[in-house]
Design a binder for these strands. Structure first.
Lengths: 227, 227
DNA sequence: TCTTAATGTTACCAGCGGTAATAGTTAGAT
DNA sequence: ATCTAACTATTACCGCTGGTAACATTAAGA
């Protein structure tokens, strides 16, 4: 039988190189889209990366996969920043407020690339992969919190999608219109999210202030590094 | 000076005919997109309409305008149904619940065409026109209600965008996954929206149950026909 | 009589996403 | 030493899509 292809050094010696190079191309795509918008052509992105088009197609099956990679990049960035704010010790409400602030700041850095968070890669998959990624992580966080407090964890997934959907919608409105200050937008958004989650949870007998970290308790929302 | 073009009977005699024909083409587009998805080509839509492509370009400047017309059609349909539910005499909360149910039912009729509610016509305009249309009307409703009850009407616009964003996100998730029943999805969604609005309003001193119609009061949320 | 807008099509074009073909180098496996 | 796997890069090419030009006739208003 043929040897295991994956342990062949002629193949594996390129793994790290490929991953690093792919990341360079994603960053080039982010820069291009930040400049030209999400309709930037593959040729535009290739030019920014300093290669010809067929080189990009060695790393991405098609434009959809390239867009999905940009969306995933944006999701990773958002998650890192929002989670670091949400997981810092504070009252549950202050965590929501800090997460919202981190989200709006991150959005303002790459407004165009963030459109790909919620943009479908094609009509076949209506949920943008980046948005889906964020919703999946939020589902886990909310699910853990609700189970810890004795609530219905089945609500976690729809609520997570609600939070992600409203966040992208209000974020885009704010970027487009700038009719309110960043502080006001952050307040409107965090008030809405806090009351939605705490009120809906309280109705099923769950008190979200059980997640407060003010009194030194270890909360169920742990750093993801420990999972 | 040249006569006012708009009062020339040779031009105006076609106005109604043009409007009716345009509507036929929008409906053909809705059918095509419901069948083939939002990536359906202009040629596909023209074939469904029984005309050649250049005929469609007499009514729509480009594909973006055709998509926007589909989004506007979807928004009109949603608004008609949701508003008729929301404006019926009931408690404020029951109105929210009825509006959500109407929304989900409408969504299930034309799942693919509804994707164009939230899909940008191009990278230049990140807000889909259909979604924007719904948010604008919701902004008016919420603004009227908040002013009537003595609250901060400035919150109406971001909250309206939040409601529309979460509605489309959870609606799409539900259509794609169907992991929960329609009744459960409706309950999660309406709980979330109700608590978000009532809780955030209460924090600024506004009691949304002042909008209840149970005791025969005339509410500020009047039928749009009377405006 | 002239003008305006309608009716419809085929043929055509530029640009985009994506692919085939070309040739040489480096390092691991046999 | 030889073979293999993946790398380096480009130009030329293709099908498809969105969009447009050109053509000819009819009905109604000015």
């Amino acid at each position: 039988m043929a040897p295991n292809v994956k342990s062949d050094g002629r193949t594996t010696r390129w793994d790290r190189h490929r991953a690093e190079r792919r990341e360079e191309f994603v960053l080039a795509a982010v820069r291009t889209i930040d400049t030209l918008g999400p309709d930037a052509s593959v040729a535009d992105i290739a030019a920014e990366a300093g290669v010809s088009k067929p080189v990009l197609y060695r790393y991405f099956a098609d434009k959809g996969e390239l867009h999905a990679a940009v969306g995933a990049w944006a999701a990773d960035l958002v998650l890192a920043r929002v989670l670091s704010a949400v997981l810092a010790p504070a009252t549950a409400r202050d965590r929501v407020t800090a997460g919202v602030a981190a989200y709006l700041d991150t959005l303002a850095e790459h407004p165009q690339a963030f459109l790909l968070l919620s943009r479908p890669t094609s009509g076949q998959d209506p949920l943008g992969p980046g948005k889906d990624q964020i919703a999946a992580k939020l589902t886990r966080l909310l699910g853990d919190a609700l189970r810890h407090l004795g609530g219905d964890a089945g609500a976690a997934e729809p609520w997570a999608h609600a939070v992600v959907g409203l966040g992208t919608s209000v974020g885009q409105w704010w970027l487009e219109r700038h009719t309110v200050s960043r502080a006001a937008a952050a307040r409107y958004l965090s008030d809405f999210i806090w009351h939605a989650l705490s009120g809906a949870a309280a109705e099923s007998g769950v008190d979200l202030s059980g997640l407060d970290a003010g009194d030194g308790d270890v909360t169920p929302i742990r750093s993801e590094k420990h999972r």
